[in-house]
């Protein structure tokens, strides 16, 4: 890897001052479980690496009695593995990262900001996977793990975050700190589909950092995450779904959020599928119908039609798991 300057600030103000104004100039280091591979593979070649781990205030996890949670961006993934009933979607997503090393080294903020696992991107063909003549490699290539939703643009990778679908299902907000101070975005709006290879997959400015994720009250929330995965040991899900439901006194669905992971360049909010559950008692049929609706607009690439089925099943099973 190219030589770089290493900075280890102790406050968020210092950190954002050390970060560059354009992507690629600097990189923020948290757990390093992704950044180190990116550096070793020369996929990022920053002039400076800014270690955030020295900012102690960003590591706390607070769970007040109102059922909400304030999760510091530097909290380990392990720390959100056992947050209690309402957070089941989040805990299960964290548990799905079946490597104790990664759960303990990796951070919640890092999970949200990790880069796609698209094998063309990781082989050096850029975020939008083009060869030296500018031909897009994914449409005619091996796209078995690529997007089935939101794939009509040039970005066809899938968002790799395990926790993002759960945060979005739980209506979390992401707190961001930059030179202009603090701002907050809904978790669903934190992720963006880049239009060029020099953009990133999240709504941060190059000199901003995630500081905290705020999950509103989960009292009465039934949530779950279901991953379709080949291996029980560390593996990327082929498709995943997080759901969060509230039920009325007669066990009919009052509110529903359904978010798919590993199927689109961003965590995919399945609005129509969620709406289909409102007013219904959860049954195998209702869950299956929501699963069908969640992929109604899916569009398979040449080799990933099977993922449509997997995503649909993940939604169905997450719903059933949430109420079991």
């Amino acid at each position: 890897m190219h030589k770089f300057e290493y900075a280890s600030p102790t406050t968020k103000e210092q950190a954002v001052a050390l970060l560059g104004k354009s992507w690629g100039e600097t990189e923020a280091l948290a757990g390093g479980t992704d950044l180190l591979s990116l550096l070793k593979d020369y996929l990022v070649t920053p002039k400076r690496v800014v270690n955030l781990k020295g900012i102690k205030e960003l590591s706390s996890v607070l769970t007040p009695r109102d059922g909400s949670a304030r999760i510091g961006a530097l909290a380990s993934i392990e720390a959100v593995r056992d947050l209690g009933r309402g957070f089941a979607a989040l805990s299960q997503a964290a548990a799905g990262i079946t490597s104790p090393q990664i759960r303990n080294m990796g951070t919640v903020g890092g999970d949200l900001c990790q880069r796609p696992r698209c094998w063309y991107f990781r082989s050096g063909f850029g975020l939008l996977a083009k060869d030296e003549s500018g031909n897009a490699l994914v449409p005619n290539g091996d796209n078995r793990y690529h997007a089935i939703l939101g794939n009509d643009g040039e970005a066809k990778f899938v968002n790799p975050s395990s926790l993002a679908p759960a945060f979005i299902a739980l209506n979390a907000k992401i707190k961001i700190f930059g030179p202009a101070g603090e701002r907050e975005v809904e978790a669903a709006k934190f992720f963006v589909t880049p239009k060029s290879a020099s953009e990133r997959e999240y709504a941060l400015q190059p000199n901003e950092i995630v500081t905290m994720i705020h999950v509103p009250s989960t009292l009465g929330v039934r949530s779950a995450t279901y991953e379709v995965r080949q291996r029980e040991v560390l593996d990327w899900p082929l498709a995943a779904a997080s759901v969060a439901l509230t039920l009325d006194a007669s066990k009919k669905v009052k509110t529903a959020r359904i978010v798919l992971g590993h199927v689109a360049p961003v965590p995919w909010v399945a609005e129509e599928a969620a709406q289909s559950l409102i007013g219904k008692t959860i049954s195998e049929d209702a869950a299956a119908e929501a699963g069908r609706l969640a992929v109604a607009n899916a569009h398979a690439l040449s080799r990933n039609a099977y993922k449509i089925q997997l995503a649909s099943v993940a939604v169905k099973r997450a719903i059933l798991q949430a109420v079991s």
């Binding site: 094998w119 005619n140 290539g141 091996d142």
Partner: peptide, 10 residues
């Protein structure tokens, strides 16, 4: 997994 286009192992 070999890529037909680039000839590389993916």
């Amino acid at each position: 997994v070999m890529d037909d286009q680039t000839g590389r192992m993916l």
